[in-house]
């Protein structure tokens, strides 16, 4: 791995996205619009105040996983992935290059989503907003790195998309969005403790309600970061230069 190759990859991914207005819109605006839709649905109730923070975790996470999967799927389809892996590009250069590019977009995306949820949708945040943005960014980057991990595991282009129901949906169901995690059956609650999205939702809820101190939130943030680092390392180790 070399910094110049990693950064060249980051620059290349950002140049590609710059040429693709629809992906920019999907990345930057769609999570906010979906949060707005949820707020609208529940506008006559107090539900949005309780599920709003989770929505800031959910939509950027899904959108990032999706965009990353699709981008790497295209790398496979067009043969550029195979070409890159026949060149002196470290597998880590590719994974980290993508993570940095989408990480930069995640900062923009999450800032917009948080700002939109607070100012337009009227979500009340008791804790520090910067911390909310920080957790939201980490959560979006988590979506990216899990997308990269899924596509690294995939041996064929179709497997990339097949991983989505396996990796993303259980995290949504067990993340405390449908039912608070402490009300889940014991086995599922333990399982949900091990899933990173649960920790993002917990952290965002804690900041929104001000129920926990910053140290708790930073601890949750650390768990998410550990998942990000783990996914990047595992994805780099799993990517195969040779395919059948």
């Amino acid at each position: 791995m070399t910094p110049s190759r990693t950064l060249a990859t980051t620059g290349r991914v950002l140049s590609q996205i710059r040429h693709d207005p629809r992906t920019i819109a999907l990345l930057l605006l769609v999570p906010s619009l979906l949060i707005g839709l949820v707020a609208w649905i529940f506008s006559e109730t107090t539900v949005f105040q309780s599920v709003g923070p989770a929505m800031i975790a959910l939509f950027p996470f899904i959108v990032m996983f999706l965009v990353t999967s699709i981008t790497t799927l295209r790398e496979r389809r067009t043969g550029t992935l195979e070409r890159l892996l026949s060149m002196p590009l470290g597998k880590g250069d590719l994974i980290l290059g993508y993570t940095l590019a989408f990480g930069l977009l995640a900062v923009l995306q999450s800032s917009i989503a948080v700002l939109f949820a607070i100012t337009v949708c009227g979500l009340d945040i008791e804790g520090p907003v910067w911390l909310l943005v920080a957790v939201a960014v980490a959560d979006a980057v988590l979506g990216t790195t899990l997308g990269l991990l899924a596509s690294a595991f995939a041996r064929t282009e179709f497997q990339v998309v097949q991983f989505m129901p396996v990796i993303v949906f259980p995290q949504i169901l067990l993340g405390g969005i449908f039912l608070p995690r402490d009300q889940l059956p014991d086995v599922l609650r333990v399982l949900s403790d091990w899933l990173p999205l649960s920790h993002a939702v917990d952290a965002l809820n804690a900041i929104a309600t001000g129920s926990e101190d910053d140290a708790y939130v930073l601890g949750e943030l650390l768990i998410i970061l550990a998942w990000i680092v783990g996914a990047v390392i595992l994805a780099s180790a799993t990517l195969r230069r040779r395919t059948p």
Binding site: A8, R12, G79, T80, E82, R83, M87, P88
Partner: peptide, 24 residues
Amino acid sequence: TQDASVYDDLTVRQNLDYFRAVLG
């Protein structure tokens, strides 16, 4: 490869600049 393995959403020069950086 048989099908052109290049990035369609980059210019010709951007493609070459990137692969040049990868190759060093």
